[in-house]
Design a protein around this nucleic acid. Structure first.
Length: 259
DNA sequence: TTCGGCGCCTTAAGCGATAG
DNA sequence: CTATCGCTTAAGGCGCCGAA
């Protein structure tokens, strides 16, 4: 290794698998392991999830964007409008059902600007813009959760028996977060005297209320300190220790060994 | 002249790093 | 430990430009 490279001054202790500390890489390693025969069952057992069903029919995804991808399949503005008004049940539902597309988008503050021809994705609504149009605190808060839910994206999801999913939240250094996150939105919540919404509540709303799945949540963490109070929590080390790693490449087993 | 593709612009999310 | 900052990425409108 050349002495003029960074590695000349800062010596790696071995191959990258011995010191990698990237959360998304951990998810990729888990995903690779879960695709090996028998590991889905072992992982479900370790979590205590009874929704797996037939392993051969199960599906596993990283960066689960179910709502976004379902939305993009259906471009008809009236279908999208009906879905939003039906699920959100806003006080001005009658007006929202009949107003122009651009007025609909403007009401929710669609970004970067309101389209005149397509009903825009709720994840692109602006809290600070629709705050001016929704004075009622309960409805404002519901609209926020609705918007946030469409942006919520679990690290890993297993589809098991019909309508049953296991939502895996992968944590490395940080714990469970909360909404709102931006300072402007926080000010608006403070002004209205509203409490912050936990990430878990937004996630549950997405997968249960919006999508209609029977969902179980689980956390994977680096150390016990990041554990969730409300969900089954497993350390990465314990999770991998339940899985068969014999057929994985040596560098993956090396990475697991260094957890 | 119109239409479609491409790149630019604006806005927001999410993350780690950092400061208090 | 928490609030804030900066960086990167994504989404979608819109203008530009060339071809039919």
């Amino acid at each position: 290794m050349g002495g003029s490279s960074l590695q000349g001054w800062l010596k790696p202790p071995g191959a990258f698998s011995t010191f990698n500390r990237e959360e998304r890489n951990a998810v990729a390693m888990l995903y690779a392991a879960l695709l090996h025969s028998g590991n889905l069952e072992r992982f479900a057992d370790a979590i205590g999830w009874d929704g797996l069903g037939q392993p051969a029919a199960a599906e596993v995804f990283v960066e689960w964007t179910y709502a976004r991808d379902l939305w993009s399949l259906h471009e008809d503005p009236e279908q999208r409008r009906d879905a939003i008004v039906g699920l959100l049940a806003p006080a001005n539902a009658d007006w929202l059902r009949h107003c122009a597309v651009e007025q609909f988008n403007t009401f929710f503050g669609a970004t970067p600007r309101a389209s005149s021809h397509e009903i825009q994705y709720p994840g692109r609504w602006s809290v600070r813009r629709f705050a001016a149009n929704i004075p009622d605190n309960d409805e404002f808060r519901r609209t926020c959760v609705f918007k946030w839910a469409f942006n919520s994206k679990p690290d890993l999801v297993i589809h098991g028996s019909p309508d049953r999913v296991l939502w895996i939240e992968a944590k490395w250094t940080s714990g469970e977060g909360s909404y709102p996150s931006s300072s402007g939105e926080k000010r608006e919540f403070a002004r209205r005297g509203l409490h912050a919404v936990s990430q878990t509540d937004v996630q549950r709303f997405l997968v249960t209320e919006l999508l209609g799945f029977d969902a179980t949540f689980a956390y994977l963490v680096k150390t016990g300190t990041a554990a969730s109070a409300s969900h089954p929590t497993l350390t990465w080390r314990d999770a991998f220790s339940q899985l068969s790693t014999e057929s994985l490449p040596p560098f993956v087993r090396e990475w697991i060994h260094h957890l």
